[in-house]
Protein backbone atom coordinates (compact mmCIF):
# COMPACT_ATOMS: atom_id res chain seq x y z
CA UNK A 1 0.00 0.00 0.00
CA UNK A 2 1.07 3.58 -0.65
CA UNK A 3 2.05 5.60 2.42
CA UNK A 4 2.90 9.26 2.81
CA UNK A 5 5.42 9.65 5.59
CA UNK A 6 6.11 13.10 6.92
CA UNK A 7 9.26 13.87 8.89
CA UNK A 8 10.40 16.79 10.92
CA UNK A 9 14.18 16.80 11.06
CA UNK A 10 17.17 18.91 11.92
CA UNK A 11 18.03 21.21 9.03
CA UNK A 12 21.59 19.94 8.78
CA UNK A 13 23.71 18.83 5.89
CA UNK A 14 23.79 15.09 5.83
CA UNK A 15 20.33 14.53 7.27
CA UNK A 16 18.92 13.87 3.82
CA UNK A 17 21.63 11.33 3.03
CA UNK A 18 20.88 9.51 6.24
CA UNK A 19 17.27 9.07 5.18
CA UNK A 20 18.14 8.15 1.60
CA UNK A 21 20.91 5.82 2.80
CA UNK A 22 18.55 4.08 5.19
CA UNK A 23 16.11 3.34 2.38
CA UNK A 24 18.72 1.94 0.05
CA UNK A 25 20.54 -0.02 2.76
CA UNK A 26 17.37 -1.73 3.95
CA UNK A 27 15.83 -2.18 0.54
CA UNK A 28 12.80 0.06 1.03
CA UNK A 29 11.15 1.85 -1.87
CA UNK A 30 11.07 5.61 -2.32
CA UNK A 31 8.43 6.74 -4.79
CA UNK A 32 9.06 10.40 -4.17
CA UNK A 33 10.77 12.57 -1.64
CA UNK A 34 10.87 16.29 -1.05
CA UNK A 35 12.35 18.40 1.67
CA UNK A 36 12.64 22.10 2.58
CA UNK A 37 13.15 24.19 5.70
CA UNK A 38 10.10 25.07 7.79
CA UNK A 39 9.11 28.40 9.43
CA UNK A 40 11.76 27.47 11.99
CA UNK A 41 14.94 27.51 9.88
CA UNK A 42 16.63 24.94 12.13
CA UNK A 43 14.05 22.36 11.10
CA UNK A 44 13.31 20.77 7.76
CA UNK A 45 10.19 18.93 6.80
CA UNK A 46 10.37 15.99 4.46
CA UNK A 47 7.57 14.16 2.76
CA UNK A 48 8.33 10.70 1.57
CA UNK A 49 6.04 8.48 -0.45
CA UNK A 50 6.72 4.79 -0.17
CA UNK A 51 5.02 1.50 -0.86
CA UNK A 52 5.09 -1.55 1.37
CA UNK A 53 3.20 -4.04 3.49
CA UNK A 54 2.12 -3.00 6.99
CA UNK A 55 5.16 -4.77 8.46
CA UNK A 56 7.54 -2.95 6.12
CA UNK A 57 5.93 0.43 6.83
CA UNK A 58 6.18 -0.24 10.56
CA UNK A 59 9.89 -0.98 10.18
CA UNK A 60 10.39 2.11 8.01
CA UNK A 61 8.86 4.41 10.60
CA UNK A 62 10.80 2.76 13.43
CA UNK A 63 14.08 2.93 11.56
CA UNK A 64 13.49 6.58 10.59
CA UNK A 65 12.72 7.38 14.20
CA UNK A 66 16.08 5.92 15.19
CA UNK A 67 17.98 8.43 13.07
CA UNK A 68 19.42 10.96 15.46
CA UNK A 69 18.46 13.95 13.33
CA UNK A 70 14.82 12.95 12.93
CA UNK A 71 12.75 14.91 15.44
CA UNK A 72 9.28 13.57 14.68
CA UNK A 73 7.58 11.42 12.17
CA UNK A 74 4.02 10.69 11.15
CA UNK A 75 2.45 8.39 8.60
CA UNK A 76 -0.07 10.81 7.08
CA UNK A 77 -1.94 8.03 5.35
CA UNK A 78 -2.88 6.57 8.74
CA UNK A 79 -5.50 9.29 9.17
CA UNK A 80 -7.26 12.19 7.46
CA UNK A 81 -4.85 14.27 5.49
CA UNK A 82 -4.49 16.52 2.52
CA UNK A 83 -1.99 15.85 -0.19
CA UNK A 84 -0.69 18.11 -2.93
CA UNK A 85 1.89 17.76 -5.61
CA UNK A 86 3.09 20.36 -8.10
CA UNK A 87 3.79 19.43 -11.70
CA UNK A 88 5.12 21.44 -14.62
CA UNK A 89 4.49 19.96 -18.05
CA UNK A 90 5.83 21.37 -21.26
CA UNK A 91 3.71 20.23 -24.20
CA UNK A 92 3.88 20.71 -27.92
CA UNK A 93 1.15 23.21 -28.77
CA UNK A 94 0.72 23.91 -32.47
CA UNK A 95 -2.33 24.89 -34.51
CA UNK A 96 -5.67 23.68 -33.29
CA UNK A 97 -4.08 21.67 -30.45
CA UNK A 98 -3.42 24.95 -28.68
CA UNK A 99 -7.07 25.49 -27.94
CA UNK A 100 -7.65 21.85 -26.94
CA UNK A 101 -4.70 21.86 -24.53
CA UNK A 102 -5.83 25.08 -22.94
CA UNK A 103 -9.29 23.64 -22.40
CA UNK A 104 -7.83 20.52 -20.86
CA UNK A 105 -5.62 22.57 -18.56
CA UNK A 106 -8.69 24.54 -17.47
CA UNK A 107 -10.63 21.39 -16.70
CA UNK A 108 -7.79 20.25 -14.42
CA UNK A 109 -7.50 23.76 -12.94
CA UNK A 110 -4.02 24.08 -14.34
CA UNK A 111 -2.55 27.30 -15.55
CA UNK A 112 -0.35 27.96 -18.50
CA UNK A 113 2.69 29.77 -17.19
CA UNK A 114 4.91 29.91 -20.26
CA UNK A 115 4.00 30.19 -23.88
CA UNK A 116 5.97 30.02 -27.10
CA UNK A 117 4.59 29.64 -30.61
CA UNK A 118 5.23 25.92 -30.41
CA UNK A 119 4.71 25.04 -26.74
CA UNK A 120 2.84 25.62 -23.53
CA UNK A 121 4.16 25.02 -20.04
CA UNK A 122 1.33 24.05 -17.73
CA UNK A 123 1.43 24.29 -13.97
CA UNK A 124 -0.77 21.79 -12.21
CA UNK A 125 -1.35 21.15 -8.53
CA UNK A 126 -3.26 18.34 -6.92
CA UNK A 127 -3.04 14.86 -5.54
CA UNK A 128 -0.54 12.66 -7.27
CA UNK A 129 -3.32 10.66 -8.85
CA UNK A 130 -4.85 13.80 -10.34
CA UNK A 131 -1.53 14.65 -11.94
CA UNK A 132 -1.30 11.10 -13.25
CA UNK A 133 -4.77 11.49 -14.73
CA UNK A 134 -3.81 14.71 -16.48
CA UNK A 135 -0.76 13.09 -18.03
CA UNK A 136 -2.89 10.20 -19.23
CA UNK A 137 -5.24 12.54 -21.07
CA UNK A 138 -2.36 14.12 -22.94
CA UNK A 139 -1.04 12.29 -25.93
CA UNK A 140 2.38 10.89 -25.12
CA UNK A 141 4.06 12.43 -28.15
CA UNK A 142 2.81 15.88 -27.22
CA UNK A 143 4.62 15.91 -23.87
CA UNK A 144 8.05 17.48 -24.23
CA UNK A 145 9.07 17.28 -20.60
CA UNK A 146 7.62 16.81 -17.14
CA UNK A 147 8.80 17.67 -13.68
CA UNK A 148 7.00 16.74 -10.48
CA UNK A 149 7.81 17.70 -6.91
CA UNK A 150 6.50 14.53 -5.36
CA UNK A 151 3.68 14.65 -2.87
CA UNK A 152 3.61 16.96 0.14
CA UNK A 153 0.97 16.75 2.76
CA UNK A 154 -0.43 17.76 6.10
CA UNK A 155 -2.77 16.09 8.52
CA UNK A 156 -6.28 17.51 8.58
CA UNK A 157 -7.43 19.84 11.33
CA UNK A 158 -5.84 19.14 14.69
CA UNK A 159 -3.42 16.53 13.33
CA UNK A 160 -0.25 18.59 13.65
CA UNK A 161 3.37 17.56 13.33
CA UNK A 162 5.29 19.92 15.58
CA UNK A 163 8.45 19.68 17.59
Amino acid sequence: MRHIISLLMENESGALSRVAGLFSARGYNIESLNVAPTEDPTLSRMTLVTVGSDEVIEQITKQLNKLIEVVKIVDLSEGDHIERELMLVKVRAIGEDREEIKRLADIFRGSIIDVTDKSYTIELTGTSSKLDAFLETMQRNMILETIRTGASGLGRGERILKE
Partner: peptide, 11 residues
Protein backbone atom coordinates in the same frame (compact mmCIF):
# COMPACT_ATOMS: atom_id res chain seq x y z
CA UNK B 1 15.34 -0.82 24.21
CA UNK B 2 15.14 -0.55 20.43
CA UNK B 3 11.59 -0.47 19.03
CA UNK B 4 12.88 -1.42 15.58
CA UNK B 5 14.12 -4.74 16.97
CA UNK B 6 10.58 -5.64 17.92
CA UNK B 7 8.43 -7.42 15.34
CA UNK B 8 11.21 -7.12 12.77
CA UNK B 9 11.63 -10.83 11.98
CA UNK B 10 9.09 -12.36 14.34
CA UNK B 11 5.71 -10.90 15.22
Amino acid sequence: IDPSSISKRVK
